[in-house]
């Protein structure tokens, strides 16, 4: 049995520790909290924030909306990719839309959407728009790369469409979908929070970042940034773990 390859991009604790030390040294050299806070100060502030109800309210607000947009985009991306693979006209029809969504800057979308809807639901739409083309493209590529020989085998053995999707398509599309999720989860957090900073919906992470900027509260800025990184990482790991478990379950005959 071949040895399992070590994941090249896996983050090592020692590397994180070295970067924290570099950060601490830089902060000590600069010596001004307003320009660069030390990691110790940032984590102290984070701990203080974590003891307040508003902190968790802001996290819940942004998390629900950004992840809601992500999940909706996953569902729509899969559905549209399946339709595109089946009907060439759907693919041709969607191509300009997907290209435009990919190319338009987030800021333009944010301003345009703020004209149409309230800032409360802005991050849902932004994260949806950022994630949709990534998932759509990846799933479409996955469908296109499905093993034709296996599909012919399924045809001869009269395997039902549902079983074909479950046991042949899903396992072959999964690496593409997984990669798409991994990329877009980072993107949806970045763009979702950026949208909140522009739209400033009440009780959002974006509002807290905006306030930190207005009041030159650098420790708050760093603390909230750490929060975003942590939520993004935790959710990505959790989502990919659940996805893998779900697929394993689904593929059991």
């Amino acid at each position: 049995m071949p040895k399992k390859n070590k994941r090249p991009g896996k983050i090592k604790v020692w590397a994180v520790a070295v970067w924290l030390v570099i950060w601490q040294i830089c902060a000590l050299i600069i010596g001004q909290n307003i320009l660069l806070v030390s990691p110790v100060t940032a984590f102290q502030r984070l701990f203080e924030l974590a003891c307040t109800g508003e902190f968790w309210l802001s996290i819940s607000f942004s998390l629900l909306r950004i992840i809601g947009g992500f999940l909706a985009a996953c569902a729509a991306g899969i559905l549209l990719a399946a339709l595109s693979a089946k009907f060439k006209y759907v693919e041709q029809f969607l191509a300009p839309f997907m290209l435009t969504v990919k190319a338009v800057p987030v800021a333009s979308f944010v301003i345009l959407i703020l004209i149409w809807v309230s800032s409360t639901n802005l991050s849902i739409i932004i994260s949806f728009l950022i994630v949709l083309p990534v998932i759509y493209t990846n799933v479409k590529d996955g469908i296109a790369s499905c093993d034709k020989q296996l599909l012919e085998m399924a045809q001869v053995f009269r395997i039902s469409p549902m079983r074909k999707i479950r046991y042949i398509y899903i396992s072959q599309i999964m690496p593409f979908f997984r990669a798409g999720c991994s990329i877009s989860l980072g993107l949806c957090w970045k763009s979702g929070v950026a949208a909140e900073v522009i739209g400033i919906p009440k009780n959002s992470i974006g509002e807290n970042l905006y306030n930190a900027k207005i009041y030159l509260d650098t420790p708050d800025l760093f603390a909230w940034t750490v929060v975003i990184i942590l939520i993004s990482l935790i959710f990505e790991k959790l989502f990919i773990y659940l996805l893998d478990k779900g697929i394993q379950r689904l593929e059991r005959i």
């Binding site: 020989q149 012919e152 085998m153 053995f157 395997i159 042949i168």
Partner: peptide, 27 residues
């Protein structure tokens, strides 16, 4: 006529077990 085949290539689902590959074709 119901058909069955052994292709030149194995054409098995690599992610499934031997048991599941057979069960897939003959539930």
């Amino acid at each position: 006529l119901k058909q069955s085949v052994v292709f030149q290539e194995d054409r098995l689902c690599e992610n499934l077990s031997a048991f599941s590959n057979i069960k897939l074709a003959s539930p």
